[in-house]
Amino acid sequence: MQRTLILLKPDCVQRRLMGEVISRFEAKGLNFVAMKLMRVTPELAKKHYAEHVEKEWYPTLELFITGAPVLAAVVEGLDVISVVRSMLGATSGLKAEPGTIRGDFSSSRQMNLVHGSDGPEAAEREIHLYFSQEELLDFEPTITPWVRASDEA
Rank of each mutant, 00 (worst) to 15 (best):
G93K: 12
L17V: 05
Q2F: 13
H52F: 06
G93P: 08
F131T: 00
F64A: 13
P141H: 05
L94F: 14
T60F: 14
R3Y: 05
D11K: 00
V147C: 14
F64L: 09
E126L: 03
R125Y: 06
G67C: 14
W57S: 14
L78S: 08
G93I: 08
G99N: 14
E97Y: 10
V75C: 00
E20P: 07
A149T: 10
N112K: 12
T91L: 13
H115E: 07
I6S: 00
S23Y: 02
S108R: 10
L8A: 02
H115Q: 04
L136P: 03
Y130H: 11
A122Y: 02
L129A: 06
V147Q: 13
I6W: 03
K28W: 15
E140A: 14
L8K: 04
T4H: 08
R148Y: 09
V21F: 01
F25K: 10
R102E: 07
G29D: 07
L113D: 09
A34T: 03
V83L: 08
L71R: 00
N112E: 14
F32P: 05
G67Q: 13
P42S: 05
A96Q: 12
E76W: 09
Y49K: 04
M35D: 00
L113Y: 10
A68Q: 05
T100G: 09
Y130C: 03
I22T: 01
E43D: 13
V13E: 00
V83M: 09
V53D: 12
R15A: 06
K9Q: 01
K95W: 11
S86Y: 05
E54P: 05
P59I: 10
Y49M: 01
I65F: 03
C12S: 15
N31W: 06
A73G: 01
E152L: 14
A123F: 04
G77D: 01
F139L: 02
G29C: 15
L37P: 00
K55A: 11
V21A: 05
P120V: 10
S150D: 15
G67Y: 14
I127C: 02
H48S: 08
F25S: 06
V147K: 15
M1H: 07
M111W: 12
R102N: 07
S107T: 13
E54S: 15
V70R: 01
L17N: 11
L63P: 04
I65E: 05
A123E: 06
P42C: 05
V40M: 15
I101E: 04
K9M: 04
V40R: 09
R109F: 15
G77M: 00
P145R: 09
E54A: 14
P120H: 06
C12L: 06
E56T: 08
E134A: 15
A34E: 01
T91G: 07
S108A: 10
E97F: 10
L8M: 09
R24T: 03
A123W: 03
G116L: 04
V83T: 15
V21S: 04
E43S: 09
T66D: 08
R24N: 00
D138C: 03
G89K: 14
F25R: 08
P69F: 05
M38Q: 11
E20N: 12
V80F: 02
R39I: 06
G103W: 14
M1F: 04
A123C: 08
M1V: 02
G93L: 09
A90Q: 07
S92H: 13
I127E: 02
L137K: 05
S92I: 13
L44S: 08
K46R: 15
